[in-house]
């Protein structure tokens, strides 16, 4: 209907200009293959403090990212609080309005799955989802994972020229330099994902006990049918033990799913950036944005579903459905 005339606008020339500029920049300063490291890099040479029995505590670049995530979340929470403290039913404006719509959708989803326990479960769902979403999307910001200190290493280093690294292999065994980024996405730190997974699984047990009392443990230690029906009772007992194992495997699965997806994503981003420095990374960024939101949704929704299942109890128990 509304037929817009197709013409060569200003913006596409701008895009073309940037691609060409990127091309020349890559010629002048060829991108280096980054150094991949699983644990978070330390930004401070001396430990901030030493905890007895736990060890030395350094400031790492994922902790910086975590503080940024916290700041964003606090700003959102504060914006919502400032707007809702006035009361009334009106629509919220700006970011708070978007968050309100998001919360409404998530809450309806929770309510349809968990029923009357939705009010208990929803804060976990929403908090996990928001934290994971923001930290995942942080990898899309330029400069994250790529701006940082130059550090001397013994192997796989590059020559340094002023504040930049240039692509010039140093001889093996000689001293080279690598970049220690100031900010590294917090989802690529296993501590973060394990912490979230532990909270999710532990709070699932807590909610299960609150919903069913001691009957919740019959899910893991099921002797109710062991003597009345020996064969099936034994199978039920075995299933209960398997449930116990699966709770632990849930922690691993939660932690490594998020870590694996985001770590693989960021590695792919900078490896692609090093191989083809112009334009290709932009398309992968779109994919990574999608992966980030999907992983956040999956983490939150799995937590929510497990919690809802924990409140509903075992299929065979009738009183649990009451």
């Amino acid at each position: 209907m509304n037929e817009r005339k197709w013409r060569w606008g200003f913006n596409r020339w701008l895009v073309l200009l940037f691609i060409v500029l990127g091309f020349f920049a890559a010629k002048k300063y060829p991108p280096i293959s980054p150094h991949v490291q699983l644990p978070a890099e330390r930004l401070s040479h001396d430990p901030l403090f030493t905890l007895p029995g736990i060890g030395e505590f350094y400031l790492t670049n994922t902790l910086v990212a975590l503080f940024l995530v916290d700041l964003i979340l606090l700003a959102m929470a504060f914006a919502i609080r400032r707007q809702t403290s006035k009361g009334g039913l009106g629509m919220l404006k700006g970011v708070s309005g978007a968050l309100e719509a998001l919360f409404e959708g998530l809450y309806n989803m929770t309510e349809s799955t968990a029923g009357k326990w939705a009010k208990e479960i929803f804060p976990y769902f929403a908090t996990i989802m928001l934290i994971v979403l923001i930290s995942n999307w942080m990898e899309l910001i330029p400069g994250v994972d790529s701006i940082g200190f130059l550090e001397k290493v013994a192997e796989h280093g590059y020559a340094a020229q002023g504040p930049f690294l240039i692509k010039e292999e140093v001889a093996h065994g000689a001293e080279g330099f690598v970049v220690i980024p100031w900010v590294r996405v917090v989802s690529t730190d296993l501590n973060f994902t394990f912490a979230l997974a532990l909270i999710s699984v532990v709070m699932t047990q807590v909610i299960g006990i609150r919903a069913q009392g001691m009957a919740y443990f019959t899910k893991f230690w099921n002797t109710s049918t062991l003597f009345s029906k020996p064969i099936f009772g034994a199978i039920d007992f075995g299933v209960g033990l398997l449930e116990l194992i699966s709770e632990f495997s849930k922690i691993l699965s939660f932690a490594f799913r998020l870590f694996g997806n985001i770590f693989a994503g960021s590695v792919m981003l900078f490896v692609l950036g090093a191989l083809v420095p112009v334009f290709v990374q932009s398309m992968v960024l779109l994919l990574e944005a999608f992966v980030g939101i999907i992983q956040a949704l999956v983490f939150g929704m799995l937590t929510m579903t497990f919690m809802a299942q924990a409140t509903q109890g075992h299929g065979g128990h009738d009183e649990a459905h009451a």
């Binding site: 699965s253 799913r257 997806n261 949704l297 999956v298 929704m301 579903t305």
Partner: peptide
Amino acid sequence: MILGIAFAEAVAIY
């Protein structure tokens, strides 16, 4: 579907 994909993906993640 997303839940199922997440479970199937767990294997690949391992």
